[in-house]
Design a protein around this nucleic acid. Structure first.
Lengths: 206, 206
DNA sequence: GTCTATAAGTGGATAGAC
DNA sequence: GTCTATCCACTTATAGAC
């Protein structure tokens, strides 16, 4: 509309901007953790000014809280939808577990959900986030145990596998996928067939 | 030697002081992560002044690095010792795995090793710590797969279980052990027989 | 709806005394 | 070997203009 280098931020509805910030924050927090991230990093990722980020959410802490709430909801929704499909198709126990695992890896690929949640799990000492993290984790356990019908042992094994994947992700183990055969083997083992996912997640960061 | 309230720090050899600081740092970093901790928190935990902590290690980053190197060594030593005993007693594959699991939970109980390592796993984006974390993790994988003879699948399952335990710890899930039956069930499931460990780890913090 | 300017606080690191 | 004092950079948050 004006000069060649029209870099100024466009004026868009607050609701939409809010979503943009939440997306950016999810990536930044997921990558560097709560304490390791700055509101300015979030702002830059969202293409706006730092004060605007704070103004929109009141504080860094509230922003993180929102990100976590959103991630929990997204994860729960995904699992319920996946189970609905599994029910519809009459999958067996073993099949259901694999189906859920594939859905989880899809979510990893989607980005901005799994990593911030993992970061929240490391904040048990924070009374607010800690409580939210524990609650969310228990919700998952119950859902897997009861709704998915995996039983206590199956549910805890599923969660264990998930935590291994999360850890490999935050560690960026996939950076060694090509160079280090053992890294490749471990990732393959952790992710089963759907390995490409993790590689994409890494490449997206670089 | 002087007044009644002799609260001043005693003068002790640097090497000994160094160990004290490393112990304190391991607990603080393990609890709040690298970015979430301050050198002053470490100093207070060690009962000395903040500048002294920095002076002794050059920087916060170098201190964290030291903590991680130490933790990696301790973990590796523990597993090798445990395997030596397993060999001596001629334990079978399944028995060896359980034996290693018990050893790991002992290490959790000991404190200051497992949690800082877990925190390091979340720092994949840091070129120095990230590389150290990946290296340490791969070392564990190889050790479990080859030395312990668990095979690729067994090793990755073992690590998965470990990551679940670590996550439950950092999340402080044990705080709900009494009040929330599902939390209890999940912890029992993750830790097997040796549950008391996790409870102690929590109580030690409060 | 979004920015610039900036206040206020925190935390890592350095200097130098004891 | 250890501290006090302090500097400086960084970060969150606020004020107010556009």
């Amino acid at each position: 509309m004006s000069s060649v280098s029209e870099t100024r931020t466009e004026r868009i509805p607050a609701a939409e901007r809010r979503e943009q910030i939440l997306d950016a924050a999810a990536r930044v927090f997921g990558e560097r953790g709560y304490a390791g991230s700055t509101t300015d990093q979030v702002a830059q990722a969202a293409g706006i000014s730092q004060p605007y980020v704070v103004r929109m959410f009141g504080s860094k802490e509230k922003l993180f809280d929102e990100v976590i709430i959103r991630a929990r909801e997204r994860l729960e929704t995904l699992f319920r939808e996946t189970l609905a499909i599994a029910d519809r198709d009459g999958l067996t126990g073993q099949q259901r577990q694999e189906f859920l695992g594939a859905a989880y890896l899809d979510l990893v690929e989607e980005g901005g959900i799994v990593l911030p949640l993992m970061q929240a799990f490391l904040l048990g000492h924070d009374s607010v986030i800690g409580a939210s993290a524990r609650e969310g984790f228990l919700m998952m356990y119950r859902l897997l145990r009861d709704e998915a019908g995996l039983g206590g042992e199956g549910a805890s094994q599923f969660l264990a596998g998930g935590m291994l994947i999360n850890t490999l992700l935050t560690m960026r183990m996939a950076e060694l996928y090509e160079a280090e055969p053992d890294a490749r083997e471990l990732i393959d083992e952790a992710c089963g067939a759907k390995v490409a996912v993790m590689l994409d997640a890494v490449k997206a960061e670089q």
